[in-house]
């Protein structure tokens, strides 16, 4: 019973966050100076009546609350609304694009985590490795993700390696410090004095103590991976969600932006709640 109550409270908090986040985004978008600025209005070839028509189209979205309420009502029916710039249902857009993003994110996350974990462990276990891996990570950390993407493209590397390279130094830094602290605990010394195998010490004594940090890092890294997917998909002309977000931003596509924001907020918050819950258990 207690368990059910906690899940309900988590769900309520999640829903409130997403709803408030969506409303704030909508209000921000609506009141932003760029909201009425449509590229088409800057087009000198259009006459006044066409511009008026475009204005009228925007006017429909003017009342924030009404727009939001309409949006929410649609959401309840599984209708995410229409994209203003692409003139297609948003649900369809997301359905046809999420697989691309999910694939490169999963591959990039896996590669980045494995690379970072192995090198962080090597750095903690061996002083000589620490110096080399440190230089490598500072080098990767000093390049903007877009530059990493460009370099990988020029060298014809696989796309997801960009995401792995963006994630690697941040994961590496954090994991190295985490492992260093974990290995410095007195009970690890006890385990060593027992004569345990190093792998057993890692699996039984080091990692279980870091579970909450690792979980939090997993969530952060997924979010970072999506951030990195934006320039990657833009550069590689991959039809994924990252490219969609970029297109929506360039075209100032209000419904699409709000929907994407809410979707991403919801996903990250679900991840957070799950990890919170896990840690508390």
């Amino acid at each position: 019973m207690l368990w059910l109550g906690r899940v309900a409270r988590q769900a309520a908090s999640l829903a409130a966050t997403v709803l408030i986040g969506g409303l704030l985004t909508t209000a921000l978008v609506r009141n932003s100076p760029g909201f009425d600025a449509d590229e088409r209005q800057l087009d000198a070839r259009l006459d006044d009546s066409t511009r008026a028509l475009i204005q009228a189209g925007h006017a429909e979205n003017h009342n924030v609350l009404r727009f939001y309420a309409r949006h929410m009502r649609g959401l309840l029916h599984g209708d995410l609304g229409m994209s203003a710039s692409l003139q297609t249902p948003i649900a369809g857009l997301i359905r046809s694009r999420y697989a691309v993003t999910a694939e490169i994110m999963a591959a990039g996350l896996a590669a980045g985590w494995i690379l970072a974990f192995v090198l962080a462990l090597a750095a903690v276990w061996n002083g000589a490795c620490a110096r080399i891996t440190g230089v490598f990570s500072v080098a990767a950390l000093s390049l903007p993700s877009a530059a990493l993407a460009v370099l990988v493209f020029v060298l014809h590397g696989p796309v997801h390696s960009v995401i792995a390279l963006v994630l690697f130094p941040r994961l590496f830094d954090y994991l190295r410090n985490l492992l260093q602290d974990a290995y410095a605990q007195p009970h690890i010394l006890t385990a060593r004095a027992k004569g345990l195998h190093p792998v057993r010490i890692l699996v039984r004594h080091v990692l279980p103590g870091c579970d909450r940090q690792l979980l939090a890092l997993a969530g952060v890294s997924a979010s970072m991976a999506f951030g990195a997917a934006i320039p990657v998909e833009t550069l590689g002309d991959l039809p994924g969600l990252g490219q969609l977000a970029w297109k929506a931003a360039l075209a100032r596509d209000l419904p699409l932006l709000v929907t994407l924001t809410m979707l991403i907020t919801m996903l990250t918050q679900i991840c957070n709640s799950v990890s919170d819950w896990w840690v508390r258990e």
Binding site: T17, G21, T25, L28, V29, S32, P33, G34, F35, A37, E39, L42, S145, G219, V220, S223, M224, F226, G227, A228, I230, P231, A245, W246, A248, A249, L250, R252, L257, L260, T261, I264, T265, T268, Q269, C271, N272
Partner: peptide, 26 residues
């Protein structure tokens, strides 16, 4: 809570959205 929520979103995406809200012809 606000910081937690905002930090868990991809920051590049947030910037993209807010940057897009600024007027074009400035």
């Amino acid at each position: 809570r606000t910081i937690d929520v905002l930090l868990s979103l991809p920051s590049l995406f947030l910037l993209l959205v807010t940057r897009a809200l600024m007027p074009l012809n400035i």
